[in-house]
Design a protein around this nucleic acid. Sequence first.
DNA 1: GTTATAAAGTTATATATAGAACTGGTTGAC
DNA 2: GTCAACCAGTTCTATATATAACTTTATAAC
Lengths: 242, 242
Amino acid sequence: MAETTSNIDARLPAYLRLRDELAARVAAGEWRADEALPSDNRLAREGNLSVGTVRKAVQMLVDEGLLERRQGSGTYLRKPAFNATLFRFFQMRDAGSGQSIPTSRLISRKQMTAPSGVAEVLGTNDVIRIERLRDFADRPFLSEEIYIPTNLFSGFEAMPDKEVGPLLYPVYLEHFGVFVASADDEVSFGTADETTAKRLGIGPGEAIAVIERTAYCISGTPVEWRIARGPANRFRYRSRIG
Amino acid sequence: MAETTSNIDARLPAYLRLRDELAARVAAGEWRADEALPSDNRLAREGNLSVGTVRKAVQMLVDEGLLERRQGSGTYLRKPAFNATLFRFFQMRDAGSGQSIPTSRLISRKQMTAPSGVAEVLGTNDVIRIERLRDFADRPFLSEEIYIPTNLFSGFEAMPDKEVGPLLYPVYLEHFGVFVASADDEVSFGTADETTAKRLGIGPGEAIAVIERTAYCISGTPVEWRIARGPANRFRYRSRIG
DNA sequence: GTTATAAAGTTATATATAGAACTGGTTGAC
DNA sequence: GTCAACCAGTTCTATATATAACTTTATAAC
């Protein structure tokens, strides 16, 4: 199990192969939070590699936010920060510290043929569409439409609602071995159509913010496309560059 | 000249000292675009360091977008991409390839006491405020208010308009030795006040997008805070995460 | 002139090694 | 019991070295 989405090997340099192998093993759940991964020395011995090569591979996963190194102690998973990083958007205005995660209600999940734009991005017609609504401060504030390729996420549409939870990327990782390593966001503004307005509890034609996101796994393959809409006046989007 | 904003040394590891030294020398204009920097070997010899240490330092500047390595050839500055990176925002909707840089009109520059919020971010009361207006497709689309600390940018307010140009970060680098390495952006929405509306050529109360940015130099010191406002319907903000 | 070939220089990958800095646990002195 | 010292294990920094992969320039062959 736990084949990563990346087709490992293909005679890549050793440090890249190790990086992908480690990412796959993390995805497979081989280690849990606050349990140390094998030390650099062990990884080197077991992989017939030098410590330098191991360190290069591990460092890449650290840079990507998957792992965390603690000097003198070991190398650990870094789930919380991982979540925070990929979820540091959509903070409500005036929401002080507000690291709280909004609740989310699944509206629908179904396998379908991808709309043309989505098919182009994901490189396949066979997708699963997820519609959900996120609440914040007891009011709906984000209506999302999410597309993931069926071949990577087969069975997702049949998962019990309970297991899906408010954050999708951890689910991708733990149940399907897909590690979302980066994403492109585009923020723009528009006005609410009938359906969106109803879901968000605002009037049709009111100003909304639109976030379109393409998410990529570690090898650069796009693994998700989503569009999210929320009332413009409650919106704040944060981004760190560089 | 060309003291970086970072206080070099302080018995940091050698690779960090070299990184900062190189950044300073780049800022000082020691090499121009498409002229190779000294090779890894030379830097090692001249700095009494090993090649591995040199490579680590250079790699950091590559990751930060300052330099570019070409296998078999050498290490080069990377101004164009640097600009593109820090300017990949504010792309107009429907602007196809649209890598074009909007023109910018300086409205005012003056030394002043910082508003409290700005002073808090920049850590000083003595700032220079720049107001400018950017045009795109012959219409104003971004009204900016920019604050930089006087101690770092002394003399900026007196520079001839000609030398300022449409992009500020290259000016920071070349004239003041300040390399903007990262930035935090916050995007939100609001409505135009009287002044903003007039500058943007829209009606007061119309929807606008607001981008607040804090920019940091390589050592993490904040070196600029700005707020930009533009008509919401013409707006599109892009960001890459991870 | 054009095209191979060679050579030198550069970055990229990989190994081996040593000691510093730090962590977490154990042992021993009191 | 408390505290200090020690120790094994870990990451971090740094060096030295060798080879591969690639680029650029010069040289030679035709």
